[in-house]
Design a protein around this nucleic acid. Structure first.
Lengths: 99, 99
DNA sequence: TCCAATATATCGGATAACCGATAAATATAT
DNA sequence: ATATATTTATCGGTTATCCGATATATTGGA
């Protein structure tokens, strides 16, 4: 067991990635894998995307590409604000670890 | 149920706060409350601190103030790197939500 | 010293978050 | 069109993470 697994950011990150450009499930999973060093399994990513869709935050086209809805944009913005309130000293954090 | 509760960062944030200056449990909880808008309960913060101590990442003095050990500094640094690998575009995120 | 207020600590339990295994759908090549 | 590979989807189950309730310890004032 690691110090902390830092769970709880998959949906948030997925929303963020989708906001940059519409993406298919595999693309999202692959990008998360690049960032975190561990690609989320299909059993993780697809239920998460289904959940986002069920909440009206994303839509899916014929090509299975996910895109943000207006509601999704608002929701992402709210979460970004919460994120930066929590990590208000993120610049200091970065300069501290030198990355 | 919110979109995502963003769980999993309490230990990480506690380590980060302690790294800035030694703090008592209440102080840590209060600072987390300021940032997140919700103060973690005693049943949350103290087991987390106990865990950090059990892993040799922090020490406690007579005044019950927690401070980082050398091992704790290394562990924090590793987690900071992981954090910024995951949120590699954090500046873009910030400018996006305007905060 | 005694009491009240505050801080620390512990425990059982609830649930968000994720994964493995498996199946179904879709795309691609021959 | 058929086979193969890829992508998508679902389900049950596991675990990290957190909280409520409660108990103990510590502090500060009268």
């Amino acid at each position: 067991m690691a110090l902390c697994e830092m769970k709880g950011f998959l949906s948030f990150l997925a929303l963020w990635l989708i906001s940059k450009r519409p993406m298919a499930g595999v693309e999202i999973a692959a990008e998360l894998g690049r960032r975190k060093g561990h690609t989320p399994s299909p059993g993780t990513i697809y239920p998460a995307l289904k959940d986002l869709k069920g909440k009206g935050l994303v839509t899916v086209d014929k090509k299975k590409r996910y895109a943000l809805t207006q509601k999704g944009k608002k929701e992402l913005n709210a979460h970004l604000r919460y994120f930066f309130a929590t990590f208000c000293d993120v610049e200091e954090m970065r300069s501290c670890c030198g990355k």
